[in-house]
Design a binder for these strands. Structure first.
Lengths: 326, 326
DNA sequence: TTGTACGCGTTATCAA
DNA sequence: TTGATAACGCGTACAA
């Protein structure tokens, strides 16, 4: 009963005499033998591990994404290493290196800055298959995104249709594809409606609740405040709501409001908050599949780019603007 | 320039001639050498990996917990493997085995059923240091919990104080410590107030939004409906809210409502929903520390049991009951 | 101070 | 069909 035989039994190979096989099985049971996956990884040159690097797992939409990725990987016999960067560049580099050292078979990554050539270089240098999530760099990585332009176009269009003209968009830095797309959709809606567009009221700078709070506060204090706000970040809604609350502004009578990515409780708010939403579970599923096919070599060499549709959910937080705003 | 020398340079040992050290450094840089953590794990018998098994990372409170654990582990040079069980027993066993095979140095675990001796045995058999999260089995594992009894006592007491007598508690199965504690706090509040307790209105069966929805629906249809509901599960609030919404019941005029674990948007609901809450970040931090001290052997042999305080946040969703309820 | 060689637990190859 | 052995990449004990 040599080690090789045991390995063959566990590997399910046929060339083991039934008697021996049984004996091995029994002994394994008796001593509670558990194969050491680390040694397997070493021998096979694959860890069946994938690294998942996100901004903040606490954002409901990202949690759904992570859960979906994990589920998909689990089904394929992979295990996922999770990292939260908080958007900190040095943490991003650190986790990238850590995961590379740990020989993850693949990486799903969202980084804070898209243009950064150092980051692109670092990603390439790992030599690990990579799927970019919500990032659209020029580099040749597989990537998956939501159609923010389409969703924002639909939302803006709706606001224009019901009579709004002075609409504020608060969203992240144009370094990020998602913010650029939203800006494009926002502008398109104006231009297709043949309406003049006030550049000054499209605020790009951050995705956080804090940023949303600050910007909404400034907007509402303005002598000529917007009649509608598009809260263009996954976690921005609470911040914007706080500003609205503090200012005592009534929605939708004095201000129409649309959130990005449906929050679990958004429909129970009074009034229910309209939203642009998309399927994070599907996004996670596809991201994982993109990566897994890349890992097993069944994918074309060319980088793939998947864009998932977004949808505008109309709710009572939107109404035609009042004559004399506030 | 032998392998041993390279290893010594990377390990930061002193006994390397400065000239050689520099030369090694430069070569490492040039060829982009990255130490293989898998081989290190094999040699050292430690992976610096911890496994985290939770019910559902999509629940905001659990996401906060996971994030906190991950952060703490990262700071200590550990990496975390994440698993979502969805409460499925076979998945729980599966992930436990997977993580054991992968030689994780420690495990933080929430399992669906507490009494299950098979599960306890499986945990013990791994031989891996374990911290139980929100589970209070008789077995001798380190564990960390929130003081649900205290929070529930305070909340129930508040409702009794403002005049409620018929209060419904919807919470999980008494197999789970959290549910038992809540039930205890609920009962204590009645008995200390010397009020009769209606057992039939404490509903134990699940933590999900769906369960909350079903039970709330039944309660509100009752000819003698409760004047207050305690939604006793992390993710139950949306379900209960839906039932309330559908029935057209006004909060707090017709029904007082308290949620468990503050939802991010709970304060923006109309009315803001009172809550029992506690610090999930701290919970995660302490869980990780409990585990890390266990791993590095600096902990006493005896199992430790940490209980974190909970706090009742009074908000406008609670008001004295009306004379003639509905 | 530096180099050599062993062993960690597997799988795969080769010989028996 | 089975057993022995090399190799994966590292850290370290020991020899030089």
């Amino acid at each position: 009963m040599a080690v090789g035989t045991v390995s063959r039994v566990l590997g399910g190979y046929e060339n083991v005499a039934p008697g021996i096989r049984e004996k091995v099985r029994k002994t394994i049971e008796q001593v509670g033998f558990v194969p050491n996956a680390i040694a397997q990884s070493m021998r096979l040159g694959a860890t069946r591990t994938i690294g998942l690097i996100v901004y903040d797992i606490t954002v409901p939409a990202l949690a759904a994404f992570v859960k979906s990725v994990q589920r998909e990987c689990q089904d394929a016999g992979y295990v996922v290493l999770l990292a939260n960067t908080g958007g900190d560049r040095s943490v991003e580099f650190g986790m990238l290196k850590t995961f590379a050292q740990r020989q993850t078979d693949g990486l799903i990554v969202t980084f804070g800055s898209e243009g950064d050539p150092d980051l692109s270089a670092a990603l390439t240098e790992t030599g690990i298959p990579i799927v970019l999530f919500e990032r659209d760099t020029p580099a040749e990585f597989d990537r998956i995104l939501a159609d923010h332009e389409g969703g924002m176009y639909a939302a803006t269009r709706h606001l224009l249709d019901i009579g709004h003209r002075r609409i504020a968009l608060i969203t992240g830095s144009p370094q990020i594809a998602a913010a650029r797309s939203r800006l494009a959709g926002f502008r398109n809606a104006y231009s297709r409606a043949k309406l003049p567009f006030d550049e000054a009221i499209a605020l790009s700078g951050g995705f956080s609740a804090a940023y949303g709070y600050e910007q909404a506060k400034l907007l509402l204090r303005d002598p000529n405040p917007p009649s509608a706000i598009l809260a263009g970040g996954l976690s921005m809604l609470p911040g914007v709501l706080r500003a609205i609350d503090e200012r005592g502004v009534r929605v939708p009578e004095q201000l129409s409001l649309i959130g990005i990515a449906d929050a679990p409780l958004a429909e129970f708010l009074r009034p229910p908050i309209a939203a642009i939403r998309w399927d994070f579970v599907e996004l996670g599923r596809l991201a994982a599949q993109l990566l897994l096919t890349r890992i097993d070599g069944s994918a074309d060499a060319a980088a793939r780019r998947l864009v998932l549709p977004t949808e505008f959910i109309s709710r009572e937080s939107c109404a035609p603007p009042q004559r004399r705003a506030r």
